[in-house]
Design a protein around this nucleic acid. Structure first.
Length: 888
RNA sequence: AGGCCCGUAGCUCAGUGGUAGAGCACUACCUUGACACGGUAGGGGUCGGUGGUUCAAUCCCACUCGGGCCUACCA
């Protein structure tokens, strides 16, 4: 079968994915413990989600790891699944129901609404998985899971109950972040802090109760003064020494508030140095309240309106109440000014609504006992972060961690397994209990709240493997090898998996956390659904192919820098895929009559070029494997890219043309063997990055040379590291140098390719190197088109109509009779001379410094001395040539 | 307020204590039986700034200026 002239990805991708999947190549074998295991759980995308470039990056990197390890002899498992994404999904379906049925979820009621969500999930839940298939992801679809499927729901209940039994889950009325629009509690992490919001710092006076004066306080949220239960000052502040312990009178509500001294809350430098204290609606004030035994008065309700405790303002929206408080205070003559003030507003991660801290009954995870072992695990190196800098981020957060609010007032999610009897006793159980565990009464009512989505996500590495059953899968594949995800969810997800994995499995959930960069748009903006700047990777794969996108993402994944994706880069790597295609096409055209050696033994090289390309191949393999081991995907990709394009294609294929089409059958066979070996190895080396094209080419290539290849390149061995023949690399240097020099003259002097160069003299080269140069450049087609190379120790024969090129260790004189413009050649030589002069001046200055010779390592000094000698010789020859030109 | 990352060619970015690199873009030439998604050659950078350490700094250190991100209860 002949290959098309250009690679057409559309004809290849879907076909191969189907065959891989049908052949069961992606299955992780839980019963096979003869090979070391290597497992990854795919960070579960939202079930409502559509593939974006972040997913594409994650999928690419994980697939590279999985395919590389699979080919390297590991028993690999890459486990897919989706997340129910509680609040996000509920919002999407709510919007949809409102649009199509003009009903709110309350109109439908809980059961009917949940039916709608499940229907939505059935309809769209498989989309994201199919999109991963288009990228070539070698996921074990037989094990696909969903956070709300039966098994995982059971794991969630089990964890909740056990944590409750251990006293690590509790229910309490605490100050939490509340979204008045979503009508739910949120964890600290779901709060987005809007930087430098242009707010106002507004001041007013609390009159002392005895009428002897006033204390002026400032606030950015005037409406909260209705819930004030104290005024705080710094204990060492002279200005307020007299008022501590006295009372002020609330100007609107009339109650008396104590003036307390609190060094933790109050910054004497800020504002007036006196702070109003609202324990029910501010986290810092809440702490003050606890320290001083203050009453907490809630004045803002769950819907964002003022409650009964707000007195005359009850029923107003919180922002209307703000204006109203200011008006009332102003009328009372107690307003004391205002100034612009930048503040960080907390907003709902989902809907951007300004959050309200308020007191509410919620479920919490007591986090400190879970965090401590998760910190230790990282300290002890049982889990490590790559890039390393994220260790600090993780540690800092874990050390300052607060209890985790896990209840959400939503409908879509795992309903909390807690039941209340008529007397308000709580029974926590795995199954719905018949009677109250405390008083035995019934009926019981289940807690209506659901758990934070991240609660079930935290269990993902083991819940997906069958926990709480002691499954073979867990035994074989837990802990996973790598957690590969974005650094934006270290706290949301990575940290919580660490805590839960250690607590319930007794071992960390993953050995390495690799945090990939963020993919940004061309302006460097983060791509997000809410911003609407999401690029659909499937548009890219449709246009350029999945391999091109994958290779691009891998090649741009450097550590410590975000990816700004430019279309030109993808085009460039698409060209690379095409180059590989055509290199194989060339090989297939020239492999007639050759049989691959049994056992895939490397070919015996015949020429310096053979030895050189095999050495370079081994170096590329070593570089790529070392880079992969260090998670340096860009280096791995670039090492292979360089080798395939700039060494195999640019040099070896060109050099091999003579042998492949020549009369000598031995030379032809050797060239065939070396070329086939390099190509076949390159395909295996590249397979994890570009699975489709490499599979297609590998099958075609091996079918031609071997007859019956393996079912998939994925079953072939990944190229192994080995010793590089550095002598072969060095020996070939002069060939490249001489050819480059000839091409340089040709290019600079505008000698058309058609003009074959004859009578080229190469001199000042070691005899063996000269033999190589002679052999390889006799006829090297597009490299130089040199015919009849002459050799000599030093080409001194007068050739007036010539150009000269002097390189390290050699001199090439190119006769250009009739084709050469003497003035141009003189100018060219002058340019060369001034370059040499500049280099010489720098080096000579350095060598003239006595402390350089004294302190620098001898090898550095020697190298510079040799270089000076070489440059001087080069200068001399160039000038001699120039003199000859002028004399002619 | 604290922490982290980034400033290298026109653009997007690698990189290293010892002569500055790639891709794209640009200029010139080339349709040569693998490939124009190609080939060859060329132009283009005092590696953000200032000091310090060193024989030697783009690289290490300090400060500084710009850009980005994350954490945080300055009302």
């Amino acid at each position: 079968m002949d290959l098309a002239k250009a690679y057409e990805h559309a004809h290849v991708e879907a076909r191969w994915y189907r065959r891989w999947k049908e052949a069961g190549l992606f299955h992780g074998d839980e019963s096979d413990r003869s090979r070391p295991a290597f497992s990854i759980v795919l960070p579960p995308p939202n079930v409502t989600g559509s593939l974006h470039l972040g997913h594409a990056l994650t999928a690419t990197i994980q697939d590279v790891l999985i395919r590389w390890k699979r080919m390297s002899g590991f028993n690999t498992l890459w486990l897919p699944g989706t997340d129910h994404a509680g609040i996000a999904t509920q919002m999407i379906v709510e919007k949809e129901v409102l649009r199509t049925e003009k009903k709110s979820r309350q109109d439908l009621g809980r059961a009917a609404f949940l039916e709608r969500v499940w229907a939505w999930k059935e309809k769209y839940g498989s989309r994201i998985g199919e999109q991963h298939q288009a990228l070539g992801a070698a996921l074990d679809w037989d094990r696909e899971r969903f956070t709300m499927d039966e098994g995982l729901s059971r794991a969630v209940r089990e964890v909740f109950v056990r944590l409750h039994e251990e006293g690590l889950v509790y229910r309490e009325k605490k100050l939490i972040n509340w979204c008045p629009r979503c009508r739910t509690a949120l964890s600290d992490l779901e709060v987005n802090h809007e930087e430098n919001h242009a707010g106002e710092l507004w001041s007013f006076a609390y009159p002392l109760a005895d009428g002897s004066g006033e204390v002026v306080v400032a606030t950015t949220r005037p409406e909260t003064m209705l819930g004030d239960t104290a005024v705080a000052v710094h204990p060492e502040d002279e200005r307020y020494r007299g008022v501590v312990g006295r009372k002020v009178r609330h100007p609107i509500l009339g109650r008396e508030l104590p003036v307390v001294a609190d060094a933790l809350l109050v910054d004497r430098e800020f504002g007036t140095g006196a702070v109003k204290v609202t324990p029910a609606h501010d986290f810092a004030d809440h702490e003050v309240g606890k320290r001083h035994g203050l009453e907490s008065i809630s004045v803002i309700e769950l819907d964002g309106r003022m409650g009964p405790a707000a007195g005359p303002l009850a029923g107003l929206d919180r922002f209307q109440a703000r204006a109203e408080v200011k008006r009332l205070v102003r009328e009372l003559g107690l307003e004391r000014g205002a100034r612009p003030h930048a503040l960080a507003l907390g907003r709902c991660q989902r809907c951007e609504t300004v959050l309200e801290p308020l007191l509410s009954d919620q479920w919490f995870v007591r986090i400190e006992p879970l965090a401590r072992p998760a910190i230790e695990a990282v300290e002890q190196g049982r889990t490590r972060f790559v890039p390393e800098q994220w260790t600090n981020t993780y540690m800092a957060w874990m050390r300052g961690i607060h209890d985790w609010c896990i209840s959400r007032q939503l409908w879509w999610g795992h309903q909390i397994p807690a039941w209340y009897c008529g007397d308000g006793h709580v029974t926590v159980a795995r199954q719905a209990p018949a009677a109250c565990g405390t008083c035995g009464s019934s009926p019981l009512r289940q807690d209506e709240d659901v758990l934070d989505t991240w609660f079930s996500s935290a269990l993902w590495p083991f819940s997906t493997m069958g926990w709480p059953e002691p499954t073979e899968t867990l035994r074989t594949f837990y802990p996973t090898a790598v957690m590969e995800t974005g650094h934006d969810i270290i706290f949301f997800w990575v940290a919580r998996m660490m805590m839960m994995g250690i607590h319930f499995m007794g071992e960390v959930p993953f050995r390495t956390v690799y945090l990939h960069p963020m993919v940004r748009d061309e302006k460097g903006q983060k791509m997000s659904k809410t911003k609407g700047n999401v690029i659909d990777p499937l548009d890219i794969t449709g246009q350029y192919g999945a391999d091109a996108l994958r290779f691009t993402l891998a090649a741009l994944t450097a550590q410590g820098r975000d990816i700004k994706l430019a279309r030109e880069r993808i085009e460039g790597y698409r060209a690379f895929v095409n180059k590989l295609w055509n290199a194989t096409r060339f090989a297939l055209m020239n492999l007639a009559g050759w049989q691959a050696p049994a056992g895939g033994a490397p070919p015996a090289p015949a020429t310096p070029a053979d030895r050189w390309i095999l050495a370079r191949l081994q170096r590329a393999v070593n570089d790529a494997v070392e880079a992969l081991e260090a998670f340096r995907f860009n280096e791995a990709a670039n090492a292979v890219y360089r080798f395939v394009w700039h060494e195999l294609c640019d040099w070896y294929i060109e050099l091999s043309k003579e042998a492949l089409s020549g009369a000598d059958p031995d030379r032809r066979r050797t060239a065939q063997a070396v070329l086939a070996h390099c190509l076949e190895t390159s395909l295996r080396l590249l397979h994890p990055f570009t699975p489709f094209v490499t599979e297609e080419l590998w099958q075609t290539l091996l079918a031609r040379v071997k007859g019956r290849p393996a079912a998939s390149i994925l079953l072939a061995a990944y190229p192994a590291r080995g010793a590089v023949d550095e002598g072969a690399e060095r020996a070939f240097g002069p060939v490249i140098g001489v050819v480059d020099a000839i091409r340089n003259v040709r290019g600079e002097m505008n000698v058309p390719f058609r003009t074959a160069l004859a009578g080229v003299q190469v001199g000042a080269l070691a005899p063996e190197a000269l033999a190589t140069v002679r052999e390889e450049t006799t006829r090297i087609e597009r490299l130089a088109n040199v015919r009849g190379l002459e050799a000599g120790a030093a080409p001194t024969r007068r050739v007036p109509q010539s150009a000269v090129a002097v390189g390290p260790g050699f001199e090439v004189r190119v006769p250009l009779a009739g084709a050469v413009d003497m003035a141009a050649e003189t100018a060219r030589v002058d340019r060369e001379v001034s370059k040499v002069d500049a280099d010489l001046a720098g080096l000579e200055r350095k060598l003239a410094n006595p402390s350089f010779a004294a302190r620098a390592p001898a090898e550095v000094v020697d190298r510079d001395r040799a270089r000076v000698a070489e440059l001087r010789q080069r200068r001399e020859r160039l000038l001699a040539h120039r003199a000859m030109l002028e004399g002619a």
